[in-house]
């Protein structure tokens, strides 16, 4: 551990960046997931087809590859667009932070689509009918009845999905983002103690996932509190 003295600050700030990526990716993931799930469950054939295409493609493609396509692909596109406007431009890219968050959320979003779809299907149709019969509009029913019930059912699987987001953030270091793994790479090349360095990073991630697990457990308890008294 003493081998890393002096590096704790760098690792700390790297972790902060990691958490930021996690936060942004999580929001995007939920967005993609909700979009995908509602598309799959809709009556619109095109929406269903697109959503199916989305899930099949992104559940079968390695996360690393998606990140590489998003980052380098967008860089090439942006650069050529920029060069057609201003020939002096050498290189234009989406910052690795955003490319990474987008890439991760595209991939995990496809899994979350399935999670949410299953959860929506699990909502008792009787409740939805009751809401309509009481005069609530489609949107109101969606917001006040379907979503609250659905997220309770989705929680366990969604917890797993969130795990994936956390762990995929490590891949963004390969795009050059200065988050915790990147910091560790630098530390390792200087201290020449790769085992200790990466073990520390592993423990940092373990800490993050532990907090996540406990939060999900607490959320599950909260979400199911109205069921506890049942006999």
């Amino acid at each position: 551990m003493s081998a890393l003295s002096g590096w704790w600050g760098v690792l700390f700030w790297g972790t902060v960046v990691t958490l930021k990526v996690f936060g942004v990716a999580l929001l995007l993931t939920v967005a993609f997931g909700l979009l995908g799930a509602t598309a799959k469950l809709s009556k619109n054939r095109i929406a269903v087809a697109l959503a199916n295409f989305y899930t099949v493609v992104f559940r079968g493609t390695p996360e690393l590859l998606v990140l590489l396509i998003v980052y380098y692909g967008s860089a090439v596109t942006l650069t050529s667009i920029a060069q057609s406007i201003n020939p002096a431009v050498k290189f234009l890219d989406i910052p690795p932070f955003w490319a990474g968050a987008l890439g991760i959320s595209l991939v995990v979003g496809s899994y979350v689509t399935e999670t949410f779809r299953g959860a929506f299907l699990g909502v008792d149709p009787g409740h939805v009918e009751a809401a309509r019969a009481l005069g609530l509009s489609n949107l109101q029913t969606f917001i006040h009845i379907r979503i609250p019930q659905m997220w309770r059912l989705a929680l366990p699987a969604f917890g797993n999905n969130m795990f994936s987001v956390v762990k995929d953030t490590a891949l963004v270091s390969l795009l050059g983002l200065e988050e915790v793994v990147f910091a560790a790479d630098v530390a390792r090349s200087v201290t020449l103690k790769p085992f200790a360095t990466y073990s520390v990073v592993a423990m940092i991630y373990l800490a993050i996932t532990t907090v996540l697990t406990l939060s999900v457990m607490a959320l599950e308890k909260y979400a199911n509190r109205h069921l506890e008294g049942a006999r």
């Binding site: 795990f163 956390v166 762990k167 995929d168 953030t169 490590a170 891949l171 270091s173 390969l174 793994v181 560790a184 390792r188 020449l192 103690k193 790769p194 085992f195 200790a196 360095t197 990466y198 073990s199 990073v201 592993a202 991630y205 373990l206 996932t209 532990t210 697990t213």
Partner: peptide, 23 residues
């Protein structure tokens, strides 16, 4: 299982590939 499911695959690879030869 807790450790291997709670840490990124990339780190696990790095620990084995970069870390172990250290010893």
């Amino acid at each position: 299982t807790y450790v291997f499911r709670g840490t990124p695959m990339l780190i696990q690879i790095f620990v084995i590939y970069y870390g172990l030869p250290q010893f």
